[in-house]
Design a protein around this nucleic acid. Structure first.
Lengths: 188, 188
DNA sequence: GAGTGCATGTAAATTGTTACATGATTCG
DNA sequence: CGAATCATGTAACAATTTACATGCACTC
């Protein structure tokens, strides 16, 4: 299961379920999302399996919290997951399905659908680009960064590449759609 | 739920659960996958809801089969899904997570992980490009195609854009990784 | 008659979502 | 004291995966 290994990855730095929830809602949201109601039981399960250990701690700002950290067994499991082959092939991309079936609506609506995708992806790309510029302003050339900063940066770059490609597709498709409309106009 | 609407989309042309299973395993596999054990109950549910109707039919080559087709209510539901906003924001992309946590393994292993991703994506891109070339050889300029051929083609184009972007990221990342290794070699 | 492809399914387990419960601490 | 943020969870439901069951028709 991927979620468990993602939790393991984050917990090389000790953290809490609540904090991980925020991580998914912010830092990781271009590649993964999990509700806290899924995170808490998953952490308990990982602890029972011996991949995490927990301690209760007083919070400086709120109620007590449960701080998890990875164990040696957890580290081994994480390494196995990372080197056990790329996790590719079970993507669920409903927005491509929407594009696929767009002949079920009229051309004007089809155009509107793609324009609204473009708006969403533009916003997401802008967000990642802002993050990237902040990192570069703060730390300079990525190739000199320590591994624990460099690899999250490459994940960010992947997001940027992906959103840019989606936007290129929007442009291409809107262009083709316009060419089709002028070739066979809906209404004179 | 996306699966239900994807089934609805395919079933504007009457088809069977078995055939849809093959569709997911072949034509749609760059954006969606469903097991037949999930498809059959989903079709029953859609039929109970009145979005599909079924008839049993003798197969020319095997046992009887259940041919589903969409109803007027199903068509309306599909249109609502298509125009009700882009289905964006719940992607699960474990391979980006793998990239993110790659500092948990040594640089040589990290490089190997990205190289194996590259191999997978190269194969997937090559497959989609073959499909595209076949379509163009058979039918010519996409902008003149009928809508029910054109939109699946744009979905294929999306896949091509996405895989090309992933490969660009692999190249970029492998380059950075090489630059880092030469800057701080593991062993003299 | 054994294997392959066609064809439909069920059962159990896992994973993920939605809705809700509970309570501490801090700020205005 | 009311609202916001911190903090951990449970319950019910929905979606998905994995494993298995069943049987037809055709070819070797």
């Amino acid at each position: 299961m991927s979620l468990e290994h993602i939790l393991l990855g984050y917990l090389r730095q000790p953290s809490t379920g609540y904090e991980l929830g925020r991580e998914f809602a912010e830092g990781a949201r271009h590649f993964w999302y999990a509700e806290r109601s899924q995170i808490y039981p998953a952490l308990r399960k990982l602890e029972a399996r011996g991949w995490l250990k927990a301690r209760d701690e007083a919070s400086p700002v709120g109620p007590d919290r449960r701080v998890y950290g990875i164990t040696a067994a957890g580290r081994k499991a994480l390494t196995r997951w990372l080197t056990g082959g790329p996790q590719i092939g079970r993507e669920r991309l409903p927005y491509i399905a929407q594009a696929y079936f767009l002949d079920a609506v009229n051309p004007a609506d089809a155009t509107a659908v793609i324009e609204s995708m473009r708006a969403v992806w533009r916003a997401k790309l802008a967000h990642l680009e802002t993050l990237e510029q902040q990192l570069r302003a703060d730390y300079g050339e990525p190739k000199t960064w320590p591994p624990d900063a460099f690899h999250p940066y490459t994940a960010l770059r992947m997001g940027i590449h992906q959103y840019a490609a989606k936007l290129a597709w929007c442009r291409e498709t809107l262009g083709l759609l316009a060419a089709r409309t002028s070739a066979a106009p809906v209404e004179a």
